[in-house]
Amino acid sequence: MSRRTYGHFCAVSRALDVVGDRWNLLVVRELSSGPRRYSDLFADLPGISTDVLAARLKDLEREGVLTRRRVGPRATTTVYELTAVGVGLRPVLDALSAWGTPLLGERGDTDAVRAHWFALPLGRAVADLVETGTVTVHIGESTLYYVVTETGVSHHDGPAAEPDLELHLDLSGAIDVARGNRTLADTVTT
Rank of each mutant, 00 (worst) to 15 (best):
L96T: 03
L96W: 11
S97W: 09
S97V: 07
S97T: 11
S97M: 06
A98P: 01
A98M: 10
A98F: 09
A98G: 06
A98N: 07
W99Y: 11
W99E: 09
W99N: 02
W99M: 07
G100H: 14
G100T: 03
G100S: 11
G100E: 12
T101V: 09
P102F: 10
P102H: 11
P102C: 08
P102S: 09
L103A: 12
L103D: 12
L103H: 15
L104Y: 11
L104I: 04
G105R: 07
G105E: 07
G105N: 07
G105C: 05
G105I: 02
E106K: 10
E106A: 08
E106Y: 05
E106S: 07
E106M: 05
R107Q: 12
G108V: 02
D109R: 10
D109L: 09
D109H: 09
T110M: 12
D111F: 01
D111N: 05
D111P: 04
D111R: 03
A112D: 15
A112W: 15
A112Y: 15
V113G: 14
V113F: 13
V113K: 12
V113N: 12
V113Y: 15
V113M: 13
R114Q: 12
R114W: 14
R114S: 10
R114D: 11
A115Y: 03
A115E: 14
H116P: 03
H116M: 08
H116F: 09
H116Q: 11
H116E: 08
W117G: 02
W117T: 04
W117N: 03
W117P: 02
F118W: 09
A119G: 01
A119N: 02
A119S: 10
A119I: 00
L120E: 00
L120I: 12
P121F: 00
P121L: 04
L122A: 02
L122K: 01
G123K: 02
G123P: 03
G123H: 01
G123Y: 01
G123E: 01
R124A: 13
R124G: 10
R124W: 09
A125I: 08
A125H: 05
A125F: 04
A125W: 05
V126C: 01
V126L: 07
V126A: 02
V126K: 02
A127I: 08
A127S: 14
A127E: 05
D128I: 05
D128F: 05
D128H: 14
D128K: 14
D128Y: 05
D128Q: 14
D128V: 06
L129F: 14
L129S: 03
L129D: 04
L129Y: 15
L129T: 08
L129M: 13
V130M: 07
V130E: 03
V130N: 03
E131L: 09
E131N: 08
T132Q: 15
T132R: 14
G133R: 04
G133C: 12
T134Y: 02
V135Q: 00
V135H: 00
V135F: 02
T136F: 08
V137I: 09
V137S: 04
V137R: 03
V137Y: 00
V137K: 00
V137P: 00
H138S: 11
H138D: 12
H138A: 07
H138G: 07
H138L: 08
H138I: 06
I139E: 01
I139D: 02
I139F: 06
I139N: 01
G140L: 05
G140W: 06
G140Y: 06
G140P: 11
E141D: 15
E141I: 09
E141H: 11
E141G: 10
E141W: 13
E141Y: 14
S142W: 15
S142H: 15
S142G: 10
S142R: 14
